[in-house]
Simulated scan of single mutants.
Amino acid sequence: MIFFIFLLACAAAASTGIIFKPGAWYESLVKPSFTPPNWLFPVAWTIIYLLLAWAGYRLSLIPGSQMVLALWAAQIALNTLWTPVFFGAHRLLAGMVIIVLLWITVAAMVVLAVRLDLITGLILFPYLAWLCVAAALNFSILRNNR
């Protein structure tokens, strides 16, 4: 049951991608050469959200995981916020601020999770890696589309 609560939170975050689609505005932006193909985004995020729910569930079973779970809650809120700000409001700088805060939050979450349970920390690592790509992409788009 607890896993499904984490999965529901991830589904709520994912739903912003359905509501605020990249569309013609995003296609018109100057993007860097390392921009992943469009089909990869939903695949990557689906895997990341499933891993996030699994990690949240695992953390909920570990005594003393309150701080990591608080970071989990903070990251899902920031994650949910980024899409409507970037794709909905077309606010590139605000999106950059959010993704930097998200990266810091997830990095702290990974470090603390590894200390509590190596497997859970490893489960979260692909998310941090993908955020590195996403942040670099956001930064490049911000720089090239003023």
Rank of each mutant, 00 (worst) to 15 (best):
M1E: 12
M1P: 07
I2W: 05
I2G: 10
F4K: 07
F6R: 10
L7M: 14
C10V: 06
C10M: 13
C10E: 11
A11E: 13
A13P: 04
A14M: 15
T16R: 01
I18Y: 10
K21W: 04
P22K: 12
P22D: 00
G23A: 12
Y26W: 15
E27A: 15
V30M: 08
K31H: 15
P32M: 04
S33D: 10
P36C: 10
P36T: 08
N38F: 09
N38M: 06
P42F: 09
A44T: 07
A44L: 12
W45K: 00
T46Q: 06
I48A: 03
I48N: 05
L50G: 06
A53R: 02
A55N: 07
G56N: 03
Y57W: 11
L59E: 01
S60K: 05
S60T: 02
I62N: 00
P63K: 09
Q66H: 08
Q66K: 11
L69M: 07
A74S: 13
Q75S: 09
I76Y: 11
A77K: 03
L78G: 13
L78W: 04
T80Y: 14
T80R: 06
L81R: 00
W82I: 09
W82A: 04
V85D: 06
G88I: 00
A89H: 07
H90K: 11
H90C: 08
H90M: 04
H90R: 14
R91M: 13
L92F: 02
L93D: 03
G95S: 03
M96T: 07
V100Y: 06
L101Y: 03
L101A: 14
I104P: 00
I104A: 09
T105F: 14
T105M: 12
T105H: 06
V106C: 10
V106M: 09
A107W: 03
A107E: 02
A108C: 06
V110A: 03
A113V: 10
L116M: 11
D117I: 00
D117V: 00
T120M: 03
G121Q: 03
G121R: 03
I123P: 04
P126E: 04
P126L: 02
Y127D: 12
A129F: 09
A129D: 01
C132N: 13
V133I: 14
L137T: 07
L137A: 08
N138Q: 10
N138F: 05
S140Y: 09
I141P: 06
L142F: 15
L142N: 05
R143Y: 13
N145W: 02
R146T: 07
R146P: 08
